[in-house]
Structures are given as C-alpha cells and as structure tokens.
C-alpha cells in the first residue's frame, strides 16, 4: 500500500463527480481533514454532501481527482485493497441500514467483517466467544446491552441508530463518516445520537466527519464546519467561532465558486434556523 507523505486522515484533491450534465456535485473539490479532527459538513439538498462521503470510501467512483484516506489512495484501489482501506472507516448512515430481522447483537457482530470473513461472522449464534463479548461491550458503550437479543425491527429509530453506532465501533475504525445520522430521528433522539457519536469519537481519538442539516449540531459536535456549494468547499471555519444562525444564511447566498455557472442555477432551498 502506498502511504501518502502527509499524516492527514482525509485528503481530497481536485475531485470531480457529476451525475449527468445537470448534476455536477463535485467540481474540483479540495478538502483536508487532520487526524483526530471532528468536521461537520453542511450544504443545501443536492450539494453533494452524501455523495462526497460515498466518494471517500469508494462506494461511488469519481470522474476525476484523488482521495487519500488514512494515507491510502482510495480512488486507485480495487478489490481486496479497497476493502482493506474501507475496513478502517466506520460509516453511519442516515437510515441505520441494519438487517431488520436479526438481533441487535448479530448486527453489531457484523462489524467484525471489517477484519475477518467466514460463517462465524454472520450471526451471533455462530460467533467466536471473544467476538460475542466485544459486540456486547460495543452495545454497552451505546447503552443498549439490555436489548442485545431484541430484533432490530422492534427497536425505536434512536435505538436502531445507536445499534448502528455500536456496529461501527465493533469495526474498530480509525475514521468515522456519518451521513445525517440525526436526520430521521426526533430532535431529542437526534441530539443524543450525535452526542454519542461525538463523545465516542473523542474518547477513542477517532477522526469524525459528519453531515447534518441541524446547524446547532454542526457547530456543537464539530471542531470545524465545512460548507459545500457549487461542487466546492464554499465555507470553512472553526466551530468555536461559528454561529448556527449565521450558518443558516449560508443557504440563502452561498458564495459562488469561481468560474462556476452551476452554483448559480442550483435550486437552493432555505432551511429553517437551527433547531
């Protein structure tokens, strides 16, 4: 594996990605995230936040440009090598993406597939003793040890998202990407999940990059706020000096990316002030 000279967790260089001529979601995008940093990504619907996260782990291939993830050139990797670099990245989705008919414990256990394959990683009943114990510890870390045997489709939205966080922990990642983990939850559960994710990442020294439409979350749970518009980074500031109300204005008048006509025609929609 080629190790990049810098020690950044994420280094995106001149990334280009479009879905057809009308949906250009990255247009020479540059972004660097230091190890251990917590970064929130904001932007209007269609600004390419979710796609950016997928581009980072190679779930979506870019048209051009490079992505280095923990030193590995993701955009140039394939097959096993790509899987190996993905294994170091924990991904939390907007919808928890758990296997609904399996227990919470089995779902958490699946995280072990980041480092090992085989039937003993498919279901908690088949799992090795040490893996079951680790999965149980991960469930405990998100406060759901009591619900280990419950089927996921019997859990609430907030509980499910916490199981997804536990699965991510089981993976033992170095970097966490979270795509609107607070979006499909009520305000309280959303804040709880975001808080949990931020706290666990800080405690374990993980790099955290998350997308949120809640400006208060974007400021409270990150060190740095990055705004996307017109396929580029249009805003980049310290969260400590950021203000949720002022950030909301970003959605009214995104700074136009230089030499880019698309940003002007993007259907930007005003989202309410932070909840």
């Amino acid at each position: 594996m080629i190790v990049a000279p810098d020690a950044s967790a994420i280094r995106v260089t001149k990334l280009v990605k479009s879905f057809g001529p009308d949906r250009r979601i990255a247009d020479g995008l540059d972004l660097a995230v230091a190890r251990g940093e917590a970064v929130s990504i904001i932007g209007a619907n269609g600004a390419g936040k979710s796609t950016l996260l997928r581009l980072l782990v190679g779930l979506v291939p870019p048209d051009d440009g490079e992505v280095h993830l923990l030193g590995a050139p993701v955009t140039r990797l394939k097959g096993r090598a790509l899987a190996a670099s993905r294994a170091r990245v924990g991904f939390v989705f907007q919808k928890h993406n758990l296997v609904s008919r399996l227990s919470a414990l089995s779902n958490v256990l699946h995280g072990v597939q980041a480092r090992r394959a085989g039937p003993r990683t498919w279901h908690q009943a088949l799992a090795r003793r040490e893996d079951r114990e680790e999965a149980m510890a991960c469930l405990d870390a998100v406060g759901l040890a009591d619900l280990a045997r419950q089927r996921v489709d019997s859990l609430s939205g907030g509980q499910s998202q916490r199981v997804a966080v536990a699965r991510m922990l089981m993976q033992r990642p170095e970097l966490v990407l979270a795509d609107e983990p607070d979006a499909s939850l009520d305000p309280r559960a959303g804040a709880e999940v975001m808080g949990l994710l931020a706290r666990l990442s800080r405690e374990k020294g993980l790099t955290l990059v998350f997308v949120s439409h809640h400006m208060a979350h974007a400021v409270a749970f990150a060190d740095r706020v990055v705004g996307l518009a017109g396929g580029r980074v249009a805003l980049d500031e310290r969260a400590a000096t950021s203000d949720p109300d002022r950030l909301a204005a970003f959605f009214d008048e995104p700074p136009p990316a230089p030499g880019d006509a698309v940003s002007a025609s993007l259907p930007l929609q005003r989202i309410g002030a932070a909840s």
């Binding site: 790509l82 008919r101 699946h110 980041a114 990683t121 279901h123």
Partner: peptide, 30 residues
Amino acid sequence: TDKGPREALSAMGARRMGVIFSAVVPDAMP
C-alpha cells in the same frame, strides 16, 4: 431485499459471501 444493509456491509469492507449471508439471506428468509 433492502439495499441499505448491503451497502453498510460493503462500506466496511465485508466480502461478498459475508454480505450475502449476513444481510441478504436473513432479509429474504420469510
């Protein structure tokens, strides 16, 4: 079957067999 769990497992680098027997088969069981 639901594409979400498959994507989640692929995103963590799980092998094809892992994705099939951890996510697809349990979902299709009924």
